[in-house]
């Protein structure tokens, strides 16, 4: 493998040029964590890299390359993230959709679709473009009406569309206060919750920056944090990771698992399949059948 001496940061956001060893090792630890490696293994990998750098006297970028590339190689060698701890308690049914049918003019978009999600479960809705994934989610969120069928929800509902849901001229903080007030949170609690969710997606909102000045991916992080504000019992996510870089995409799934472990029932519309072995239910609309 050839690698230029100063490292090739690309779109990772790391500084060009020689990287201080401590910074590189810290970044490596963070990237390994993102890939879902347990803390034991992460510690070993980082310690071994540190020892190698001490012995060889090389710079980290020359010996290993950028932290995220090396972390990805390690994750691939280890064989993916640690399996979910078994014995996770699954709670009562939070979302019960029955017989959802929807037609647009002549075309039947959804035909008698059922979906049940319990607290502490993640359901993925997959399917080709136009197979009705977003429509189903909008129906469950109450933003569209089906021709037939019912949706019953036990608890509070949060919804994150692929874009939008954000007010252009307000700052992130103001969004948190606004949505928080609707959920019954006072200002400081709403801000804390919103900033916490933002930080988990690797975003520190700058005060005074209006939403229209945010990049597309960052607006979506705001969108997602707002959907989650007030810890709803059911969370409907329609490919909310539009515009996320690879690291944020991994962070997003980390959050999904953490919210799930906290008892939320989550439905994710996605057509990226690499996380499917960790979800509890897969609803494939292309084949119009539910696979558990």
């Amino acid at each position: 493998m050839s690698r230029d001496a100063g490292g090739a940061p690309g779109a990772h956001g790391y500084r060009r040029g020689p990287m201080r060893t401590d910074g590189w090792l810290a970044a490596l630890a963070a990237e390994l964590h993102r890939h879902g490696l347990g803390s034991d293994l992460t510690g070993h990998v980082v310690a071994e890299a540190a020892a190698h750098l001490r012995d060889s006297g090389e710079s980290p970028l020359a010996a290993f390359g950028p932290p995220d590339t090396y972390a990805a190689a390690v994750a691939a060698s280890v064989g993916g993230p640690a399996p979910a701890p078994r014995g996770r308690v699954v709670g009562p049914v939070r979302l019960a959709a029955r017989g959802i049918t929807k037609r647009y003019r002549r075309r039947t978009v959804l035909a008698d679709v059922d979906l049940t999600v319990r607290a502490g479960e993640v359901a993925a809705i997959i399917g080709a473009n136009g197979s009705g994934k977003s429509t189903l989610l909008r129906i469950c969120a109450g933003l569209a009406r089906p021709d037939r069928g019912t949706v019953r929800i036990d608890g509070r509902l949060g919804y994150c569309p692929q874009d939008g849901g954000v007010s252009d001229f307000l700052t992130a903080d103001e969004h948190f206060v606004l949505i928080g007030a609707g959920r019954g949170l006072d200002r400081s609690a709403a801000r804390r919750a919103g900033l916490g969710d933002a930080a988990a997606l690797d975003w520190a909102p700058k005060p005074g920056v209006q939403a229209r000045h945010l990049s597309g991916g960052t607006r979506q992080k705001l969108n997602l944090a707002l959907a989650r504000l007030g810890t709803p019992d059911v969370l409907l996510l329609d490919e909310p990771y539009q515009g996320f870089d690879r690291g944020s995409y991994l962070d997003f799934w980390h959050q999904v698992w953490r919210w799930r472990d906290g008892g939320t029932a989550i439905v994710v519309v996605t057509h990226l399949l690499n996380q499917l072995d960790r979800v509890d239910t897969v609803l494939d609309l292309t084949r119009a059948e539910a696979a558990a």
Partner: peptide, 15 residues
């Protein structure tokens, strides 16, 4: 042999 190449190999062999 760069560290970035060697250590993933060692991990695979260990696994």
């Amino acid at each position: 042999i760069q560290g970035g190449t060697l250590y993933p190999v060692l991990l695979r062999l260990q696994r």
